[in-house]
Design a protein around this nucleic acid. Sequence first.
DNA 1: CAGGCTACCTGCCCGC
DNA 2: TGCGGGCAGGTAGCCT
Length: 282
Amino acid sequence: MPELPEVEVVRLGLASHVVGRTIVKATVHDVRSVRRHLAGPTDFTDALASRAVTGVARRGKYLWLQLGDDAVLCHLGMSGQMLMQRPDAPAEKHLRITLDLDDGMQVRFVDQRIFGGMMFSPGGAELPAEIAHIARDPLDPLFDADEFRVRLKKRQTGVKRAILDQGLISGVGNIYADEALWRSKLHYARDTCHLRSAEVTTLLANVTEVMESALGQGGTSFDALYVNVNGESGYFDRSLNAYGQEGLPCARCGTPIRRDAFMNRSSYWCPVCQPRPRNGRF
DNA sequence: CAGGCTACCTGCCCGC
DNA sequence: TGCGGGCAGGTAGCCT
């Protein structure tokens, strides 16, 4: 479940099941899901065995289990799931890693495409060093809106590219970028350096609002790939105004939503509400 | 720093 | 029915 709301849904679900529990044993079913762990999967499982889980934290789309001072850092990639299962439940087709807990339950990392993965981060409980370059996300109480505005306007790039940059603001992916831009009436190619202060303020407010709203509805799911720890889908897809809406009437003006290829992916936008800029500005 | 491209993977859907 | 191409919510790394 890729973007911030979906990852937060997973974090909340994990926290309710694993905090206070001990990892009895970790099992790696596919070594490709253990990432950046040069010592190999055996060292990874050794590092997790008999460790008590003290918390579950998140920054942007990364989440990590806190094990005292250390951490198990997880990214769901495009297709990762964290499922709470009983040991006798049949193995999922794409089961990659299992954590056996001392209450008899299992945390199962299921990931079809293996763009996600886990790694052990020594001393990483507060913030794993591997993701120190990731900016705070807008749901973080310490997110600095003024700093974001200053850094955004210093960029010389398109506004969508900027808000997808996890080093500037984290947690935003393709769905919520398009939704926030639609709400803000901004075209994805608008130059960051030519945005008016009011536009930046509106954009940040909309990024925050759309992700909080999606979180309140359990995230966005188009299919069974995006589910919480109990295998349930969120229903924010019903509230989407731009993403995936090609050809459907814009909820504000009725003009058909368009789809462009941009950054090797799709961008959805209303040609009337979000007019394409000339040279990045109007 | 900007940004284009590729790679990493699997599976589904479409047209032929 | 099979095959090829395009598509999918992400990130890292290389090159210019």
